[in-house]
Simulated assay, not measured.
Amino acid sequence: MQPVRRTSLIAQVTEQLRAEIRSGRWAVGSRIPTEPELTELTGTGRNTVREAVQALVHAGMLERRQGSGTYVISTSSLGGTLSEYFADAQQRDLLELRQALDTTAARLAATRRDETDIATLRRLLEDRTRFWDNDFDAAIEADVQIHRAIVVASHNAVYLEFYDSLLPVIAAGIRFRSEQDGATYHDEHAELVQAVVDGDPDRAGRVANCFLDSLMAEYRTLDTNSE
């Protein structure tokens, strides 16, 4: 970001923050820079930055978390509304929706991915594996970003907008399942990424579908045991 002119400062800073989110430089689920950092980046005062951040909180794009920071929860105000709706949805319904979304996204990604997409997927897969045993939070974040990166590789902006609204509940579901059964799913993620990288849409769709099938089966088992 660049220092802004001293006119309509709050609006300008708000638009710069929005641009960082929409571009993906601040990914859904990630924590944005602190107020002092944003003050330095934009060349504006702390009150201006605070008001700009608050505007995006009201728009449903950011969320303040006490003692942790401010996080991206959507790439648009519409996505924020959808995120609120999905937050109250049943896990079974969300998994069934993901099965449709992730399978189609994997097929599209295998057809349309470019070298940047491939590099991103390989890096995220490496991060997920490397962090799993020593930085669980980072591993979960990498896991979530792998699934998002596949949607990014589909090069369908509408698809990505909708999927981003699901990311907070997807992240919560991944964390919950990992804490419950300790399964790593390293092989499944590696196979999915490789199918996309290889440009094999049939295999990518099949792997994604099988992976979500296994998650659905696991959900049914956990749901039965909780009764």
Rank of each mutant, 00 (worst) to 15 (best):
Q194V: 02
V158M: 11
Q90M: 07
A142C: 07
R64D: 14
R123H: 14
L121T: 05
G24V: 08
R113A: 15
M216K: 09
R22I: 02
E37F: 01
E96L: 12
V207C: 00
T103M: 01
L56A: 07
T70S: 06
V169P: 02
I174P: 00
G199Y: 05
L167P: 00
I170H: 02
E63L: 14
L222M: 10
D117P: 01
A172C: 01
G79I: 07
E161H: 08
T111E: 11
I150H: 06
I73Y: 04
R128G: 02
R122F: 10
S83W: 04
L95H: 01
A195G: 03
V193G: 01
R177L: 07
A27H: 07
S30C: 03
S83A: 15
T111R: 13
R148E: 14
R18H: 08
L212T: 13
L82G: 06
T103P: 00
D135M: 05
R122M: 08
E20T: 06
Q16A: 14
L56Q: 06
D164C: 06
A190N: 03
R148L: 10
G24D: 07
Q90H: 12
T224A: 14
D223G: 03
I118S: 13
D187M: 05
V28C: 04
E35R: 12
T104A: 08
E15I: 03
D135R: 09
A11C: 11
D223T: 13
C210R: 09
A149M: 10
Q54N: 15
V151Y: 02
A142Y: 03
I10L: 06
A89W: 10
R50M: 09
D223M: 12
T116P: 03
E20D: 08
P201K: 09
H147D: 11
R50T: 13
L101Y: 10
E35V: 15
D88F: 08
E84P: 01
L108P: 00
H147W: 12
Q54T: 13
D143N: 11
T111Y: 00
G24K: 09
E141K: 04
R130Y: 14
P36A: 11
A109R: 01
S154E: 08
R5I: 06
L108Q: 10
V72Y: 02
T129Y: 08
V169T: 12
E115Q: 15
Q194T: 06
N134L: 03
A139D: 04
F136G: 02
G173A: 05
A89N: 03
Q12E: 13
Q66L: 13
G182C: 01
E126D: 15
S83N: 14
I73T: 14
D135G: 06
F86S: 06
R5E: 12
P3C: 08
A204R: 11
V72S: 00
G60N: 06
A208I: 04
I73E: 07
D223A: 15
R98K: 05
I146Q: 10
L192Q: 04
E40Q: 15
Y185K: 06
D117L: 04
E20Q: 14
L160Y: 03
S30Y: 00
G45D: 14
S77Q: 12
G45I: 07
A171M: 04
H186P: 02
R175V: 05
Q180M: 08
L121W: 07
E63S: 12
V72K: 02
Y219W: 14
I118L: 10
A89C: 11
D202G: 02
A55Y: 05
H189W: 01
T70V: 15
S23D: 09
Q194R: 10
C210T: 11
